[in-house]
């Protein structure tokens, strides 16, 4: 099966704006699916609501386009009934790290064997550019015209709190993105790939980026790939974190 077989050319052009990073992510996913022989018999896609959540519609794999914030419990439901399937979520930061954040924390706590690809563009893109849970401090959006005053969600800290798999990549560093998705797919248990992506139309444009290329160059300059596997990534690092042994939490009531 070639990469092209994973995508539905009859659905092109995509719904996404020119320069959107979502297409780079789904291409990387398709490449990994091909390498790992994921197909319509063993892999399903799940998404919530938002631009990124439209991604499953461009794959030939079967999928559930759920409701806002609930991709994780839907995926958990599928995994319970069909444990042999690869269950892969692809959704955005507003969906996974905002309205549905509690589910992400609990699925990582339970170490449910689902894979989460979060396309984080730091904005509610589909609704036109409101600040999202990952919008950086001081950034101007349509709902923070004076600059964002809320600190962004620290996704890594939440996932690593339960020693679950966490990797971070960007849409500029495509070999690393592919490597991270592959490592997540091969990991047994909960795995999260946090992909920094660009929204040139409803985010970058308003911040002075003239096009998607300039946003990608920002990723190139700002994010430093780390070699090998590290315990924790600094805020400007990308790479794969180590899967620590599951912590043995003592029962506080035991002697």
């Amino acid at each position: 099966m070639s990469v092209r077989n994973y995508l539905r050319p009859e659905r092109l052009p995509t719904y996404w704006c020119p320069g959107c990073g979502d297409g780079l992510v789904i291409t990387s996913m398709a490449e990994v699916f091909e390498e790992l022989h994921c197909d319509e018999k063993n892999t399903v896609l799940v998404s919530g609501i938002g631009c990124a959540a439209r991604a499953p519609g461009y794959f030939t794999l079967e999928s559930v386009h759920g409701l806002h914030g609930r991709a994780v419990p839907i995926a958990e439901g599928i995994k319970i009934v069909r444990p042999e399937l690869n269950v892969v979520i692809i959704s955005g930061d507003g969906d996974l790290l905002g309205i549905g954040l509690n589910h992400l924390i609990h699925a990582s706590r339970r170490d449910t064997d689902i894979k989460v690809i979060c396309i984080d563009n730091q904005i509610y893109g589909m609704t036109g550019g409101q600040k999202s849970p990952t919008t950086a401090l001081g950034v101007k959006t349509l709902t923070s015209p004076e600059g964002n005053t809320d600190r962004p969600v620290d996704c890594q800290a939440l996932i690593k709190a339960h020693n679950s798999f966490y990797a971070r990549a960007t849409t500029f560093h495509l070999p690393l993105l592919k490597k991270a998705i592959r490592a997540a797919m091969e990991h047994r248990g909960f795995a999260m790939v946090d992909v920094r992506s660009q929204c040139p139309v409803n985010y970058g444009r308003r911040l002075g980026y003239r096009n998607a290329y300039e946003m990608l160059m920002h990723f190139k300059q700002h994010y430093k790939p780390v070699k090998g596997v590290v315990d924790r990534l600094a805020h400007d690092e990308i790479g794969i974190t180590s899967e620590n042994p599951k912590s043995q939490i003592q029962n506080p009531n035991s002697a």
Binding site: I99, Y124, M126, T127, G128, Q130, L142, T143, S144, P145, E146
Partner: peptide, 19 residues
């Protein structure tokens, strides 16, 4: 508030008033 189409523009405008 939280963004949802087609209400979003109402809150954009109101965010401007607040700012």
């Amino acid at each position: 508030a939280y963004p949802i189409t087609p209400q979003t523009e109402l809150m954009h405008k109101f965010s401007d008033f607040v700012a």
